[in-house]
C-alpha cells in the first residue's frame, strides 16, 4: 500500500492532538508503520495548528508536504482554507463548518473570508458538517472532533469496530460513550 497522508488542522486548544493520536493508534493496530507529527508549546495558545499522520508499509518523513494529503480534517473553516493546498488532486477535505475569528479579525485589521466552503468546493472534494452544533445536541460541544473524525472514517479503510477499539483506548474512560456516539453521527452522515 502506498503511504497514506492525513492532516488535522485547527485552532490551538481544539483537540487536534487527541484526534491524531486516535488515527495513529488505528493505523498501528492495522499493522502499519506509523509516524505522527504534533504541535506543542507556543502555537497551542490559540494559534493555527496542524498535525500530520502518515502510515503504510514503510514511512520515512513524519510530515505531510504540499500536494500530498489524502485527507485533511479541518476543525475550523479558515484553517481549512489555509491548508487546502496540501491536498492531493482527489483528496478529501472534511470541514467543521465553524468559525473562530483570529486576533487580526477580532481587532479589525483583517477580514474573515466569506464563502470559504463554496470556494473550496470548486477545487476540492469538500465534506462539511456543523459538528459543534451536533455535539452541543449530544450534550458536550467539545466532542465535535469525534463527529468530524467519523466523516473522515468514511474515507479510510478501517472497520467501525477498529475505530471503536482505538477510541476506547484513547479518550478518558468517563467520556467513551459520548465519544462513540459522536463518532457514529459522523460515520453515518451522508
Amino acid at each position: 500500500m502506498a503511504v497514506k497522508s492525513i492532516m488535522i488542522v485547527g485552532v490551538g486548544g481544539q483537540g487536534t492532538l487527541l484526534t491524531s493520536r486516535i488515527l495513529g493508534g488505528l493505523a498501528m493496530q492495522g499493522g502499519y508503520e506509523v509516524k505522527l507529527s504534533e504541535v506543542h508549546g507556543m502555537a497551542q495558545r490559540g494559534g493555527s495548528v496542524v498535525t500530520f499522520v502518515r502510515y503504510g508499509e514503510k514511512v520515512a518523513e513524519p510530515i505531510v508536504e504540499e500536494g500530498q494529503a489524502d485527507v485533511i480534517i479541518a476543525f475550523e473553516r479558515l484553517e481549512a482554507l489555509r491548508y487546502a493546498h496540501f491536498l492531493k488532486k482527489d483528496g478529501a477535505l472534511i470541514v467543521n463548518d465553524w468559525r473562530i475569528d483570529p486576533m487580526p479579525v477580532v481587532i479589525g485589521t483583517a477580514q474573515y473570508p466569506e464563502h470559504i466552503l463554496e470556494d473550496l468546493a470548486k477545487e476540492h472534494k469538500v465534506y462539511k458538517v456543523d459538528a459543534t452544533e451536533e455535539a452541543r445536541k449530544l450534550g458536550n460541544p467539545r466532542v465535535f472532533n469525534m463527529i468530524v473524525l467519523g466523516i473522515a472514517a468514511q474515507h479510510m479503510d478501517f472497520s467501525k469496530e477498529e475505530w471503536y477499539q482505538v477510541i476506547e483506548h484513547t479518550v478518558p474512560p468517563k467520556t467513551i460513550e459520548i465519544n462513540k456516539k459522536a463518532f457514529d453521527i459522523g460515520y453515518t452522515l451522508k
Partner: peptide, 16 residues
C-alpha cells in the same frame, strides 16, 4: 506544480 496557498489572515497565538 503545487497549488498556491490561499491568502488568509494570520492566526497568531494569543492569551487564552
Amino acid at each position: 506544480n503545487l497549488m498556491a496557498p490561499a491568502e488568509v489572515p494570520n492566526r497568531p497565538p494569543i492569551l487564552c
